[in-house]
Amino acid sequence: MTRHVHAIQCIGCPVGCGGEVVIEAGAVIEMRGFTCDKGQAYAADEVVAPKRMVTTTVRVDGGTLPLLPVVSERPVPKDAIFDCIRLLRSVVVQAPVEADAIIVADALGLGVNFRAACSIAEA
């Protein structure tokens, strides 16, 4: 059985650890170079099922600002990023909006909510 070594650059935090993930038969058998639990989890995911946090803006009606920044609660599968963006493009919310309010629940059935990154008052 061949082992594969994947060089992974962690993006979990700005330290930016670089390390390696060793895969055999589709499973992670060894990891080196990552300095925290979060990094280990990221690196394993990155080889098997890469995920990313998604941030964008949605339109706001009647607010002090025309756009509301929104953020995924958790990372979403990398290949669903554009689908999430497309979904959020069509969303319009009514001011006022409270920070952390759910803007889109269970986006695309991925089990991830998109929440308001901040509050926006009524104009």
Binding site: V71, C118, S119
Partner: peptide, 10 residues
């Protein structure tokens, strides 16, 4: 915690 810029500001 991993915040957005507006989230950190708020």
């Amino acid at each position: 915690d991993e915040l957005t810029g507006p989230g950190y500001a708020h």
